[in-house]
């Protein structure tokens, strides 16, 4: 299924752009129109840190069609240094290398291709450091 352009090209996916609430300081990633901390609607632009740690993780053995050539692949919830959590693949390692608390760095990678002829989707992934 082709993904809509807004999903592929959003600045937060490529550049980890986030929004910091002007009132309570909570960082939202992705940026929100209403702060989930205090309900305020005013934000400053900010960026997520490239560094973080694993909060929890798994290794996917049965994948949706567009990811089947990648199995087994590991996915984690990563807490980056400014406290925001994201779901991301952890690559260039074996499933048994992952542990809760291990440090990771976010890198720019291909997420999947829409078949041999469609759009290539890029975004962030994590590698162990």
């Amino acid at each position: 299924m082709p993904s809509p352009g807004y999903r592929r090209e959003m600045p937060q996916r490529y550049r980890l752009e986030a929004a910091k609430c002007k009132k309570c300081g909570k960082v939202s990633f992705p940026p929100r129109l209403v702060c989930s901390g205090c309900g305020s609607r005013e934000f400053d632009k900010t960026k997520l840190s490239d560094n973080g740690k694993i909060v929890t993780y798994t290794t996917i053995r049965v994948a949706p069609a567009q990811f089947t050539t990648q199995v087994p692949y590991s996915i984690a919830i990563v807490e980056v240094d400014n406290g925001v959590r994201i779901t991301t693949q952890v690559v260039d390692c074996k499933p048994e290398d992952l542990e809760i608390g291990k440090k990771v760095k976010l890198v720019f990678r291909k997420l999947y291709s829409e078949g041999h002829t469609g759009i290539i989707c890029y975004g962030y992934k994590a590698i162990l450091i």
């Binding site: 050539t69 990648q70 690559v91 260039d92 890198v107 720019f108 990678r109 291909k110 290539i120």
Partner: peptide, 16 residues
């Protein structure tokens, strides 16, 4: 290159 790497991702990381 890894399954998720190509000229674009390599260029981005080198450029960073």
């Amino acid at each position: 290159p890894g399954l998720d790497e190509d000229t674009i991702t390599i260029s981005v990381e080198a450029a960073k």
